[in-house]
Nucleic acid binder design. Structure first.
Lengths: 161, 161
DNA sequence: GACCCGGTACTCGGATATAATATGTCCGAGTCTGTACGG
DNA sequence: CCGTACAGACTCGGACATATTATATCCGAGTACCGGGTC
């Protein structure tokens, strides 16, 4: 099991978008060039973000994407679920119903114990992601990235927004 | 992203094996019949468990699998990792290195901030799985399953061990 | 009667096909920009 | 000089191929059991 690479791309793109001045849009082409990934495919990830109302888009020249709300109102979980879907990582196929000893027509009273444990773990994962906001990421990047590189990148992006 | 169905099967099989009297083996054929899944494919999941030293196998007639240690020493995480692998669900492909502003030869000082957040969530998921032991599952099943069905299933399995 | 030996049937384990999903690419519908024109 | 209409170019969005992974199946190597033969 592995998250798709689009999740990583979407997160990086949101990080860039969160640093953009209000009202400016950034095109897929620019985001793809900055990250060195295929433009056409990256657009699928951005489409997911758009449908989830995390970003909003504009057409035409000078069009592109921007965040639909403040970075302090967007969590990692929002982004991950926009790309990967909201369904649990564990799906219970109810194989217990195939138990040859099970009386026909018997109806389970509660969810499978195994599924409950797995879903609980899934929830722990989501809670962890929910606890980190895009604004938190912004602060982390400020301290992690050398000031020089940070400023250069910012200007590079701004010149194309 | 979705866990493979083998994970579910492996967990159910371990649940059965944990109720087995010491020294008895249970064949793939029986486990497959009980759960209503293809015998040949289920064996792959059991192979994973075997390689992870969670279960041990014996050949020949009356052969099969049994737990390699007590159910209080086997966690959900052990089983999930045996089937899914131990690598993180998030893989960082270091796309930040493609940043056109990045000086050539620049060496990152610490791991990508985004990856750190994702890995932390992955760890939360694993910790949750680590906290539930096979013996805990046994207790849950005892209270969840109707006593009648529980006993019947136990005898059904025992007659084939 | 007890022990040894060989055949047999059953087991696991890995190598091999098929289906589903992730990855990557393409083209069309729509709209904003910039310009030329008219008032 | 200003407002308006229009052509053009650029954008996103979804439809279309390919590569990788999960699913399902098959066959061979190996071993414990069982029966017969021998001491």
């Amino acid at each position: 099991m592995q998250l798709k690479s689009q999740v990583e791309w979407a997160l990086h793109c949101c990080a860039i978008l969160s640093g953009l001045p209000a009202g400016r849009y950034l095109a897929t082409k620019v985001l793809a060039e900055f990250h060195g990934v295929p433009k056409e495919y990256l657009s699928k990830a951005l489409q997911g973000l758009s449908q989830a109302k995390i970003v909003e888009s504009t057409l035409g020249p000078a069009g592109g994407y921007r965040l639909a709300r403040g970075p302090d109102r967007i969590s990692f979980l929002d982004i991950v679920e926009a790309v990967e879907g909201k369904s649990s990582t564990f799906v219970c196929s109810e194989i217990r119903k195939n138990n040859p000893c099970r009386p026909t027509g018997h109806c389970e009273t509660k969810a499978c114990s195994i599924a409950r444990v797995m879903w609980q773990a899934d929830q722990a994962w989501r809670n962890s992601l929910k606890g980190v906001l895009l604004s938190d990421l912004g602060k982390m990047l400020e301290t992690d990235i050398p000031a020089d590189l940070y400023r250069k990148s910012f200007e590079w992006v701004l010149a194309r927004a």
